[in-house]
Nucleic acid binder design. Structure first.
Length: 462
RNA sequence: GGUGAGAUGGCAGAAUGGUUAUGCGUGGGCCUGCAAAGCCUAUUUAUAAGGGUUCAAUUCCCUUUCUCACCUCCA
């Protein structure tokens, strides 16, 4: 029996914290839908998808809320450029988001709240902040006063005094201190909403505090997002929420490392953004998933042209072993049962790795070791039927947790394939190679390719 | 300048106070109608440099060098 004792590193306390064993609620900062998603987004989303799948496999009840920031300068700019509305822009890219991530076999979040659907909640929240005297009104908008929240900087480990010396932010006469941030901006051009303080639109950070507290219990388990959100976004979320509610927003702040391109930051200005749809045209979604979990989630990934090729090789290895097991017909039922010990060892390593701050890399390597052993036994033809059945079910569990998808082959299809392979085998034994190749072609037309080994033939679905 | 994270074999990338990570690549072998792959085996002093603690350090501590991230919107 495997004990579920999952620890996740918390950015705030800088320690690993235990997760609740029964119920885990996650608020994940989603995307701003002003353009297509890139591989950086996919990493964060996939990491949390695998985490969710893993927890669910351990009978933990998971709830994920993932927002869409559908009002933002970039969306507005795009809508102006296109002479359309922010809703047209955001709806289009939300559609694209789902198109891409459905292909990646990412489970849907339980909710996808949008900022524009929560304007009233946002206004109410800001009102409370004003009443608590931590926000103030200027002629440009409503601002949060970071000096009123004396723990400001605790997440990103920033010292406010030093921060205020910073030269990166120009001192703005509108605000009390340069790092005060807008809760509500007064504007006269659409999109605008009425508020008690004047027409305008919400600031960037307020929606997440509002929606996470609306849909999840106080001090929910995990608040997640990319590393680059730590400051200022998550820092500000904490400030807003905690100065209003006097209770911690989330128990664990979990941050996923960024993807770099040739050791530099991926950014629009450098023109090196790699869009997900472009990768999806070239690579199997399983390969993209494998790429994303092949480095520990907390570390940056340095992407280069080989990255996906390497993930592809790894995936092919796993897939091949799966099909070898599926193709196996010559069971050696005189042999000892080997699989129980193998699976037992693998299971322990696999769970230990994931339980210890979600080390997918180590979990993956334990699976690859299992694959290696199975390949060895397959090659010497020493697996029993029980071994093969158990191995296949281990593969399926593994696929389910990591979200890998393999086309299903029906029972009837399998029978047909096996009978054709048998037919071809006899033809080959009689050196009727032309006819044998015709059978192979017939299978090829069914999208089945064959691999002849010393003592067996393996089929594989393309 | 501040804060944080790093520096592991040819490459990617884990872990660890004492034991082979794993994958790729490379050499050799087996197998082989074709095709493709697989299996076996070998492979390099692998832990940035210097010092300290210790019976023992790649792992802990100190110093140095270097890299990256955040400090402006960013997953």
């Amino acid at each position: 029996m495997i004990d579920l004792d999952i620890k996740i590193y918390d950015t705030l306390s800088q320690k690993k914290q235990f997760l609740n064993k029964n119920r885990v609620s996650i608020y994940l900062c989603g995307i701003t839908p002003y353009e297509d998603s890139h591989i950086g987004h996919s990493r964060t989303i996939i990491v949390f998808d695998v985490l969710r799948r893993y927890l669910e496999s351990q009978n933990v009840e998971v709830k994920i809320v993932q927002n869409f920031t559908d009002v933002d300068d970039k969306i507005i700019q795009r809508s102006i450029d296109e002479n359309s509305s922010i809703y047209e822009v955001s709806n289009r890219f939300i559609k694209h988001y789902h198109r891409d991530f459905d292909l990646l076999n990412v489970k849907h979040a339980h909710m996808y709240p949008k900022a524009t659907d929560h304007i009233n909640d946002i206004i109410n929240f800001i009102t409370q902040l004003i009443n608590k005297n931590v926000a103030y009104i200027t002629k440009h908008g409503v601002y949060f006063s970071i000096l009123k929240f004396n723990e400001y900087g605790k997440l990103s480990k920033k010292n406010i005094d030093k921060l205020l010396f910073g030269t990166r932010v120009s001192v703005d006469y509108k605000k009390s201190t340069p790092y005060d941030f807008a809760l509500w901006k007064f504007v006269t051009t659409p999109p605008i909403w009425n508020s008690p303080w004047g027409k305008g639109r919400p600031g960037w950070h307020i929606e997440c505090s509002v929606m996470s507290s609306k849909y999840l219990q106080p001090n929910f388990e995990i608040h997640g997002g990319g590393r680059d959100l730590i400051f200022p976004h998550h820092e500000n979320e904490i400030a807003q929420y905690e100065s209003c509610m006097n209770t911690p927003l989330a128990k664990i702040w979990m941050h996923v490392g960024v993807i770099k391109i040739n050791n530099t930051k991926m950014s629009k200005s450098l023109n090196n953004v790699i869009f997900l749809h472009a990768i999806l045209e070239k690579y199997d979604p399983n390969i993209i998933r494998l790429f994303c979990i092949s480095t520990h989630y907390s570390k940056p990934i340095n992407y280069n042209t080989n990255s996906f090729e390497e993930a592809k090789i790894k995936w092919d290895k796993i897939k091949l072993c799966y099909y070898e097991l599926l193709s196996e017909q010559n069971f050696n039922d005189c042999a000892d049962v080997k699989i129980d010990k193998l699976i037992h060892d693998y299971d322990r390593k696999f769970h230990d790795s994931l339980n210890n701050n979600f080390n997918t890399v180590l979990a993956l390597s334990s699976f690859l070791s299992l694959v290696k052993q199975l390949n060895f036994y397959l090659n010497e033809n020493s697996l029993t039927k029980y071994d093969v059945t158990e191995s296949l079910s281990t593969f399926q569990k593994f696929f389910k947790i990591f979200g890998f998808k393999i086309p299903i082959t029906t029972y009837d299809a399998k029978n047909l394939i096996n009978s054709l392979i048998k037919k071809r085998k006899i033809l080959r034994e009689h050196k009727k190679y032309y006819e044998a190749d015709q059978v192979r072609q017939q299978l090829e037309n069914m999208n089945i390719s064959l691999l002849d080994y010393q003592n067996r033939t393996v089929w594989m679905k393309k």
